[in-house]
Nucleic acid binder design. Structure first.
Lengths: 227, 227
DNA sequence: ATTGACTATCTTGTATACAAGTGTTATTAT
DNA sequence: ATAATAACACTTGTATACAAGATAGTCAAT
């Protein structure tokens, strides 16, 4: 059941470029420009654009152009709220039934992250890899509770949060270390079944990405909605 | 900033027809068929279809046709899980700060629902109206906590739950009365600030729509995924 | 009667021509 | 010089022709 290969190639590439800030907010990308880049006609490009518009990553202004959407901090706040409530509830159930093998699975992800942090000069490839391991860590926890689909449903919404994180965390060794330490703390809480501390860390972990980043936001105010 | 009027007309109409089971699961609808119906070309129809595919309401099988998706009970279960956790958290915050005027707003919605239940023979229009008041009741609660966008983000996911509810509740006076009573109980709990009972009712209220409906589901097994 | 190939006719995928609106730039009139 | 206007070069919206694949029915060969 293959579906629409060329449309998906365009979709995946453009989406990646938006999330990883190769295409920046407010950038104009025309259907023809992209169709030339990928050697296809406008139709599959339009199909891909329509999908990206439905995810609020693109904004089409008829007869004007198609623009990369601004980062919406209010939306990110609401997304974090949702993730917090859902994920804490999942972890609360998980803590009493997590198996040793599952603990090892989480540990192996942490080890991979640790290894990436060994290098002092963080390249953008390493940065991208680290953040995808961050997602893997959380997705794995969801999967332990049979909530993989919930994670996927959230993922469609979460792209804005991810794009913001890429913008903030990009190649910043200190921030990435902070994320790693949070994960380590979560792992320890699961180990010792410390529910209340777990809830505490979790909430902070999600919001940490946003705190103390006002300078970087103000410096690029035009990337953000309502600024 | 008007955008794509004809595409939106097609989108809104087809979406309505799917949710309200005028177009049933597994139904084949071709792009040409719909384009003739609305006197437009294939392009805006394709645009609308792409949007509906991204909401899992349509499934495109290339060179075969476009089909109305089956109802996915597993997905509905996950959606209820998410709504439960998020909405209970919102209500928990709301209960201590809800104002008299806000209570009146909720009451007025309840009165409208009560009025609709006066009629014994529930038409499909009344049924549709009742369910939209149900949504309004919950959306209003979200708005009281400044979480309107959270409701909207959930709404994109919730369409499957809504379609299922339409299928189950359609013109059933008893079920609709049950929903009304749940709302009434929620209202009373808000009035007397009974948090624990509130959480209890809320969880049940969401899941009530699914319970005891096995007969109706088995009778239309082909409407459902994994059956 | 059964099997197999062929054909006619569906479907969506793709490419492209044209329409309509926007913004900029050049031109013209004052 | 300046301001109004016209022409042009873009954009996305729309319509449509053709390609490629899937399916069902026909028809022939065995």
């Amino acid at each position: 059941m293959q579906k629409n290969p060329t449309m998906n190639i365009v979709y995946d590439n453009v989406k990646h470029d938006i999330i990883y800030m190769i295409l920046k907010p407010n950038d104009l990308i025309s259907e023809i420009e992209i169709s030339k880049k990928y050697n296809v006609s406008r139709t599959p490009v339009r199909d891909a654009f329509k999908k990206l518009v439905s995810e609020d990553l693109l904004e089409v202004r008829p007869q004007r152009g198609t623009f990369v959407s601004k980062i919406d901090l209010d939306a990110i706040n609401d997304i974090m709220f949702m993730r917090d409530k859902i994920e804490v509830s999942i972890v609360r159930n998980l803590v009493n039934r997590i198996s040793d093998i599952q603990m090892l699975t989480l540990l192996s992800i942490l080890k991979k992250q640790e290894k990436l942090l060994d290098v002092h000069n963080i390249t953008s490839e390493v940065s991208e890899l680290f953040l995808s391991l961050d997602n893997e860590f959380h997705e794995t926890i969801f999967s332990f509770e049979g909530k993989t689909r919930v994670w996927e449903l959230l993922s469609n919404i979460q792209v804005h949060y991810l794009r913001f994180r890429v913008f903030i965390d990009h190649c910043d060794h200190q921030i990435l270390t902070g994320i790693y330490n949070d994960h380590l703390a979560i792992f320890e809480c699961l180990k010792f079944k410390d529910i209340s501390k777990l809830e505490d860390i979790y909430s902070k972990h999600l919001y940490n990405g946003v705190k103390n980043q006002t300078i970087k936001i103000f410096e690029n105010a035009d990337y953000f909605k309502n600024f």
